[in-house]
Simulated assay, not measured.
Amino acid sequence: MVHPVAVAGFLVAILPLIATPGASLALLVQYVTDGGRRRALPVVLGTVTGLYVHAALAAAGLSALVMHSSVAFTVVRLIGAVYLIGLGVWTWRTATPAPRRRPRRRTDSVYVQALLANVLNPKAASIYLTLTPQFLAPDHPLGGQILTLATAHALLITLWLTAWTFLVLRATRVLRTPRFKRAATRATSAVLIALGVRSAVT
C-alpha cells in the first residue's frame, strides 16, 4: 500500500505534465466541439486505459527494457510520432466546408484514437519509469503500489479533462458555428502534427 503522502507527492509531481497541452486535450477539444459532452467520455476512457497500460508495462519491467535500449526507444518514439502526424493530417481533412455535414464518428474509434495517442507516447511511459520509483516502498509488493499511483493519476487526469470539457462546452455554446468548428478542428490537427514532429526530432 502506498502511503497517502507518497500519493500526494506523486500527484504534485505529475500535475505540470498533465497541465501541459497534449494529444488527449487536443482530441477532447475537437470531439467536444464537434459532438458535445458525450464525446468527452471515450477520449477520457482511452486516455485512462493508456495510463494503465503504461503502469502494467512498468510493473512487468517491459517499459524499462524499451527505455534502456536506445534502438527500442527510438522505434517506439517514431511510431508514436507517425501516428500523431497521421492523426493530425486525417483530422485536418475532416474539416469540411460549412454546407457539408461531417459523418458521425463511432465512439469506439474515438476511444481507440485516445488510447493509441497515450500508449504510443514515450513521455507517458517515462512517468512510470522515472517518477514512480521515487514514491514506492521497496519492502512492499511493487505491483499494487504502481496500480495505486496509476489510479490516482487516472483520477487526476479525468478531473483535468472534465474541467476542460465544461470550458469547451461554454465556449461552443457561444461560438457554435460551422466556421468555429472548422477552425477548432484545424487547430487540433496542427497541435497533433506539432506533437508528432516534436516527438520525432527530440
Rank of each mutant, 00 (worst) to 15 (best):
T107A: 12
W164Q: 12
Y128P: 01
T96K: 10
P97D: 14
Y111T: 13
R101I: 10
A125F: 00
P122C: 03
R102M: 11
H140I: 12
I157N: 02
Y83L: 04
V82S: 04
L149I: 01
L155G: 15
R93D: 13
T107Y: 09
G143C: 05
A98D: 12
L131R: 07
H140W: 12
Q134G: 07
L129H: 08
N118A: 06
R102P: 05
L129A: 12
D139M: 04
L116I: 00
I85Q: 09
T96N: 08
P99L: 02
P133D: 07
L149C: 06
R173E: 11
I85A: 14
N121L: 03
L136V: 03
V82T: 15
L167W: 08
V82E: 04
P141H: 10
G86C: 07
H153T: 00
T91P: 03
R170V: 15
R170F: 14
D108N: 11
P133Q: 05
A171P: 03
W160N: 12
I127P: 02
R106C: 13
S109W: 15
D108G: 09
P122V: 00
W92E: 08
P138V: 02
V119A: 02
W164D: 04
A154W: 00
G144Q: 07
V112D: 08
A171C: 08
Q134L: 11
Y83T: 13
R173W: 06
W164P: 02
R173I: 02
T162G: 13
P103Q: 14
Y111N: 15
P97F: 03
R101T: 11
L115R: 06
G88Y: 00
K123M: 07
R170C: 14
L169S: 14
P138Y: 08
T94Q: 13
L156I: 03
Y111H: 14
L120Q: 06
P122G: 05
A125L: 03
L161F: 12
V82L: 06
T94E: 12
W160M: 14
T172N: 13
Y83A: 09
T165F: 02
A163S: 14
N121V: 03
T94A: 12
L142A: 15
L142Y: 15
S126L: 10
A117R: 01
R100K: 10
P122E: 05
L155Q: 09
L136K: 04
G144M: 04
S126M: 08
A150M: 00
S126F: 10
P133V: 04
Q145G: 03
G143R: 05
R173S: 13
V168E: 06
L156D: 05
R173C: 04
R106S: 13
L159Y: 11
A154G: 04
Y128L: 05
A152P: 01
A114V: 01
Y111K: 12
P97K: 06
V119Q: 03
A163M: 09
L120T: 02
L147R: 05
R105F: 13
